[in-house]
Design a protein around this nucleic acid. Structure first.
Lengths: 136, 136
DNA sequence: TCTTATATAAGAATAATTCTAATTTATATT
DNA sequence: AATATAAATTAGAATTATTCTTATATAAGA
């Protein structure tokens, strides 16, 4: 578990209650929330936060590598505080997104792609989206 | 190469010049265009097409499985007329997206995921996004 | 405590997409 | 070929997510 205050300081960012709140919202919600869900969550304790601040903060965090953005299919941008290389399970409509951790798969893919040598392209990250149906 | 007129008929869709134009724009542009690029392309020959029609048409095509939408990272929705299972290479900013065809990888992944049996999830599609730098 | 660069609030602006209602058209039927 | 009708298109208004602007407030170092 990351200490967000330290992380902010390490990145030369001021430690503000808004930033701490945004980070906590993402980890607490824990379901790849979008900006609106994050804002709503924060407003329960901190009703005056401006949406612009939430968007700014999210952008800053993504730039600094504190969180990541998740690519979706027709849905709005969503965010993830888990930075351990992992993949995602998507419902068809991408409304629901869950983590899929699989170290064996990570190993295989980076090795495979490294060997394959894609011409004119330097690989930085590999990302698997598994689309299907959640049963529950 | 698919005959779009037949494809429309097969799907119970009327064969209109707008629909044909949208499909042709996506195949001709061939670089995962967004709705704006598609509209601009069509307007050169067909200046009166309404943006709403382009959006409707894209949505209809996606529903019917005639084209696919591509998930991106902060960019707008983009479209692909190539339905042969393939993956994508993304630049960091996702401005540039290229196809990555690799049948061996497809084989491996579907086999791997099938064996792995993700609990409470039925896999329908697997999608690899390779993020990195294009060299050229 | 003071200074100042940085961050935030509030709301206006923008951009992508969707919606609405009137009109037109593709296709099935005569 | 003409007609009927369900479906599609147009034009522009509406909506929604996100970004921008500017004045004010604040964190952190001196």
């Amino acid at each position: 578990m990351i200490n967000i205050r330290e992380k902010l300081a390490q990145n030369g960012l001021k430690v503000t209650p808004q930033r701490v709140a945004v980070y906590e919202a993402i980890t607490r919600l824990n379901n790849h929330p979008n900006a609106e869900a994050i804002t709503d969550y924060i407003k329960r304790k901190y009703p005056n936060i401006a949406v612009g601040t939430v968007y700014n903060t999210l952008e800053t965090f993504v730039q600094k590598g504190i969180i990541s953005r998740i690519k979706t299919n027709g849905d709005v941008m969503r965010y993830d505080a888990d930075l351990n290389g992992h993949h995602h399970l998507y419902s068809r409509d991408a409304r629901r997104i869950e983590d899929y951790h699989d170290e064996e798969l990570n190993q295989f893919l980076s090795e495979y792609i490294r060997k394959k040598q894609i011409p004119n392209f330097t690989v930085e990250d590999i990302n698997v989206q598994i689309v299907g149906k959640f049963i529950d």
